[in-house]
């Protein structure tokens, strides 16, 4: 199995290689943090610019921010419910914004111009650590939401229609973060890989439609992650009508 003889300089595939930083006894993936800082910086910059001068007649970036706020509020209100959505809007909104900007940043920013000693920059959400972190946060969030709102009555939810559901609901608690994280990770990584493979085969023009499809999928994945997080939290805080 020899490497391809016509190795092109601008389209090499690197999968599963990381830039390791040593942090005490632990190792972390440097490239993920670098790109996530870029993403967070961009987010904060837009937010700070947009909220610097709030006016009653919005203009410029404030319009965008208010549109986003409205959109996220609609998601949170629809899935969490009128009573509790205010507490969880920042969490849902941050998940959506972080994932969305990460996905689009991974697709739109020419990361290849930055050379790292090992690994390559890309969407932070294309790393399994990030997506599992986000999914575990969602799990913690819905447990916290249910317990803080209902106390130990939250566990009635596990036997809600019938006690037969108990094992399924317990298994669900594990499959929820699993499917959340792997869905996001798989989609983003698949997008990057498909684009990379196409660019590897035909470097010009041909990858463009796939890139646009990737942008679309990325946006939908961010929406789905936020929607599902809101749905899980809403399920946890939902009061049964006895």
């Amino acid at each position: 199995m020899a490497p391809l003889p016509f190795a092109l300089p601008f389209a090499a595939l690197e999968v599963g290689q990381h830039l390791y930083w040593q942090l005490g006894h632990y190792k972390i993936h440097g490239q993920v943090f670098l790109s996530s800082w870029v993403v967070i910086g961009a987010l904060l910059a837009v937010v700070v610019i947009g909220t610097r001068r709030m006016e009653r007649d919005p203009s410029g970036v404030q319009n965008l921010l208010e549109f986003l706020w409205d959109y996220l509020r609609d998601i949170a209100r629809e899935y969490i419910g009128e009573k509790a959505y205010r507490d969880w809007l920042p969490f849902i909104g941050t998940l959506f914004l972080f994932i969305f900007v990460s996905n689009w940043g991974g697709a739109l920013i020419p990361w290849k111009l930055v050379h790292l000693p090992s690994g390559e920059l890309g969407a932070p959400t294309a790393d399994i650590n990030t997506t599992i972190a986000l999914a575990l946060l969602v799990s913690l969030a819905y447990f916290y939401a249910g317990l803080s709102r209902k106390g130990f009555r939250y566990f009635e939810y596990y036997v809600e229609p019938t006690p037969i559901m108990l094992p399924f609901k317990i298994v669900e608690d594990f499959t929820k973060p699993l499917s959340l994280s792997f869905r996001l990770f798989g989609n983003i990584l698949a997008d990057e890989l498909v684009v990379a493979v196409l660019a590897f085969l035909v470097p010009l023009v041909v990858p463009l439609p796939v890139m646009f499809l990737g942008l679309f999928t990325s946006a939908i994945q961010a929406l789905i992650f936020a929607t599902l997080a809101a749905y899980y939290i809403g399920e946890a805080v939902h009061e049964e009508h006895h």
Binding site: L95, I128, N129, T130, A133, L134, L137
Partner: peptide, 14 residues
């Protein structure tokens, strides 16, 4: 699928 300290740090960051 290399899980390491990136995970908790990223959660903290988020």
């Amino acid at each position: 699928f290399d899980l390491d300290a990136t995970l908790p740090l990223m959660a903290l960051q988020v």
